[in-house]
Design a protein around this nucleic acid. Structure first.
Lengths: 346, 346
DNA sequence: TAAAGCAACGCAAACGTTTTCGTGTTGACA
DNA sequence: TGTCAACACGAAAACGTTTGCGTTGCTTTA
């Protein structure tokens, strides 16, 4: 069992100084061809690799990106991670993941753990609880300490940093317009409470699409679900709420849901009420996950391109990290959404 | 913008030595009550936090676990990560994620990057390409260097380390037995090529369940799908293969699929052929993901408890890391599978 | 032949900690 | 008054690197 070997050990074995070894390995011209080869051969034989931690300490850079997301068991977020990881890896960075579980305190603790030297910068999506409490001191503090942050998806304007978002507003608008174009007269929306920025924006898009077509929004067609956790347990109550929505509006012929699960549950209710999709009622979701693709009928949906979001976020962060001049100009990149038409619309 | 503050800076400001500051902060009795308070107040005001990297270098421990998985956009793997993260966090560890994308070289590179001091140990699931090539030198090398590994799900016997697996064999057997008990006479299996250990084991379970009931396996009822990538693009060809399976055996009345996607595709084909589920044909899948739960009809499936797997793996690793005595006794923990009965079986 | 140049290497600082081992200053005690 | 402990603190090493600069010993040049 040969343990990791260090410069010091090589130096001792070859009876030279540590600096000589280091320089030899980095092909410095200060070192004679002879010793260089000797050292390199020895290092290769013992499979020497410089210790990352020591390098990090010396360079004051860890070449590691910290990701904080609300949950990982979620198609969208894992897509984003996948995107981040791809460009991070390509540019020589590692990725360290912290989960907030939608909890404010876990978000803070996780960030504090990572901010103390473990990483060079953050990519994060804000926990719901944090959004509700509107307490963003941990973000401003880390930024003040000189550690850059890139936010994605769930962002807040108050914080001055790079952001990557999808055009929730426009995406929703496009979706609802599609329903209108397809002949829907009574379109409902199943959305979240307003403190979730993406939910709010999508609701606005819904409203504006209606307005553009001179349709008056009706309050009984707007269902704002309170998903403190959106835990799977709440599925039943969600179903009931949606059922009420259906009952309250017999002429319902279109539904725009702000996420997959809401859309699928709506489909379930429709099926229960013997409504044919898309003949009797058309449904569009948001977020292009596996569920949409494999649902029956497959779900027309607004894709947010999670992978692209992650890639872009990583690019922004790394560019920032490797920028020489210290000008703080922050960008907000908008990833375009795409309406993927499947079989839940005509 | 107050940058991160160090011991040295505190020492300079308060006109004491670095060691005094360090001791004062750690409440050493060597330091007078007076200076202790002064230092602690100052540190608190400037929000001092020890630099993790420096600590890692000093302690030769990073308190970080490296995870290498084939892909993250996958319900099972993200569940496992979630489990790992939960116990890791509880025990003061962080989690750093590397993706192999099922590629041998990416697996090797990722492991090498992390093994040079960045982490204390690995939790990993082997890439398909690695399984195919049967080249495990990177595992043995890291273990030889004194860095512990815990493998989960996709493991190999050749490597001597802790392992966490589900009882694929028994899980499959239970599922097939269920089909038999439910009256199925012609049960097909949709599985992977044999180099994927879990696929092979599940196939064996299928065979033994048949044998136990004196049913002769028929080769035309065994479909071994070659999913070099299992990419979403291959969905069409997968569908066609399954269709052939159906056509080749008109009396088919039960299907056991080794993953969700195979099961769902089978359901799709059945629907296409106007077969009623579960009346005409019953289907059971493996892996309890979102797809199974929300499919129509919902899919009876063998749950592997990904979260539990992750938790157990993290426990094994951390226990190993924090064990005083250096005895290398490796454990293989088997997480029991559970048959979750839904509506795709009678 | 002396000054200068050069090749090849080592020293030491630095990154930020923790910790062992001094060391100087008190006060008490004989 | 001299000795010794207790107290409070500092110096320095260590973790593993990189790098600017100093130091050899030798060869070249005028």
């Amino acid at each position: 069992m040969k343990k990791k070997i260090t410069l010091k050990q090589i130096a001792r074995e070859l009876d030279v100084s540590i600096s000589t070894v280091s320089k030899a390995l980095r092909n410095s011209i200060e070192i004679s061809e002879d010793t260089r080869q000797k050292v390199q051969a020895f290092a290769k034989f013992y499979n020497y690799r410089p210790n990352n931690i020591a390098l990090s300490l010396k360079n004051r850079k860890t070449k590691t990106i910290g990701i904080i997301i609300p949950e990982i068991v979620h198609h969208f977020f894992s897509k984003v991670i996948s995107g981040i990881e791809a460009v991070a890896n390509k540019r020589g960075y590692n990725v360290i993941v912290g989960l907030s579980n939608e909890s404010f305190s876990k978000e803070v603790i996780n960030m504090e753990m990572l901010a103390n030297g473990s990483i060079d910068g953050f990519i994060l999506s804000i926990a719901k609880e944090t959004l509700q409490q509107q307490d963003y001191h941990h973000f401003t503090e880390t930024i003040n300490q000189g550690m850059p942050i890139v936010m994605f998806d769930r962002v807040v304007n108050e914080i001055n940093c790079d952001k990557v978002i999808v055009d929730d507003f426009l995406g929703a608008k496009k979706a609802v317009r599609k329903l209108i174009d397809n002949g829907c007269k009574n379109i409902a929306i199943i959305t979240t409470k307003d403190y979730v920025s993406v939910g709010r924006l999508r609701t606005q898009g819904y409203l504006e699409a209606l307005e553009d077509h001179k349709i008056n929004p009706k309050s009984n067609l707007i269902l704002k679900v309170d998903d403190q956790l959106l835990s799977e347990d709440h599925l039943d109550s969600l179903e009931k709420e949606i059922e009420v929505l259906f009952k309250n509006s017999k002429k319902l012929d279109g539904i725009f849901a702000v996420n997959e699960l809401y859309a699928l549950t709506a489909m379930k209710v429709a099926r229960k009420l013997d409504l044919k999709i898309p003949e009797d009622i058309q449904i569009i979701g948001f977020t292009d996950g596996v569920l949409s693709k494999h649902a029956v009928p497959s779900l027309t949906t607004v894709s947010q391109h999670g992978q692209k979001i992650g890639e872009k976020a990583a690019e922004l962060l790394i560019n920032n990290l490797e920028r020489e001049d210290e000008e703080d100009v922050y960008e907000t990149v908008i990833i375009e959404t795409e309406l993927i038409e499947r079989n839940s619309t005509k």
